[in-house]
């Protein structure tokens, strides 16, 4: 009994430490964004004065608003396209048998073996030769390429877990194979589809490296690039940088809050029992 309590206590303590390590920078960013500049580096963690001037300042900047719009456009398009491409691709890998299927699956997975930095140069060369530099299209395609492989494999795992008999029952009941996918399989893997869409959005929303390599014009910059411009050596404000950080974090936090049940379901659901 005492051993159990001790073990539970130790586990709780470890969890708490891990949680503090993860949350402390986030809390610090949020608190710093609502404190006057003077308090950010000098004051303690508990704020005594509050201000919204940093938020007003960054929202007064047209380049930041343009970047916010660009990030939203690219993020939403990437998220929707990821789902639209990953669902049929993973369904095909999971349900159909054809020549080269396993090799194709391996190739999709193999793209994850190289870090993004390793493919950065070829991607930049490719985008330049296509004349797409400094376009949101370039960002959309590259972000799609980054997130799709994981999305396909993640969804394939969930589709594999849906018993084929459910689709067969639907086919006997009068649907086609595609009809069975839409009416039976898709509703059952909905949490995973939402998870995949959310992750694609988050990945695109926070992506910096490719954006830095492909975008230089202000009118097509995304939020991570716009945030970088806040580190202006002539008029630098920690408060504005932190407020920018909060703005970048808000949509992902909202998405996770909106879909938290679905996401947890999507991450933990193993099999589906009839």
């Amino acid at each position: 009994m005492t051993d159990n309590r001790l073990r539970d206590g130790l586990l709780d303590a470890v969890t708490l430490v891990a949680l503090i390590l993860v949350l402390l920078p986030i809390i610090w960013v949020f608190i710093a964004s609502i404190r006057p500049d003077a308090d950010i580096m000098t004051g303690g963690l508990i704020p005594t004065r509050f201000t919204v001037e940093h938020f007003l300042a960054i929202f007064a900047r047209s380049d930041f608003l343009v970047a916010l719009r660009n990030s939203l456009i690219v993020g939403v398009v990437v998220s929707i396209c990821t789902v639209l491409i990953a669902v049929p691709a993973s369904y095909s890998l999971s349900r159909f048998t054809y020549l080269g299927r396993d090799f194709m699956g391996f190739l999709i997975l193999a793209t994850q073996m190289l870090p993004a930095v390793a493919v950065l140069v070829p991607i930049v060369v490719l985008i330049r030769s296509l004349g797409l530099t400094n376009t949101l299209t370039a960002l959309t395609f590259t972000h799609l390429a980054l997130g799709l492989p994981i999305a396909v494999w993640m969804l394939k795992g969930y589709i594999d877990a849906v018993p084929r008999e459910l689709e067969e029952a639907s086919i006997i009941d009068g649907s086609t194979q595609l009809g069975a996918m839409f009416r039976i399989t898709l509703p059952l893997i909905r949490p995973a589809v939402i998870a995949v869409g959310t992750f694609a959005f988050v990945l695109s929303w926070g992506e910096f490296l490719l954006a830095l390599a492909l975008i230089s014009k202000t009118e097509v910059k995304t939020l991570p690039l716009a945030l970088q411009t806040l580190f202006d050596p002539y008029s630098f404000s920690w408060g504005e940088v932190m407020a920018g950080g909060v703005v970048i974090a808000v949509p992902t936090v909202v998405l996770f809050l909106l879909f938290r049940n679905q996401l947890v379901g999507g991450l933990t659901a193993g099999g589906i029992k009839g």
Binding site: E165, L166, E168, A169, I172, L188, K273, G274
Partner: peptide
């Protein structure tokens, strides 16, 4: 014109 009853029931869970 057939109907089938599966071993695992195959009821649509949703």
């Amino acid at each position: 014109g057939i109907a089938m009853v599966f071993q695992s029931y195959a009821l649509y869970p949703h």
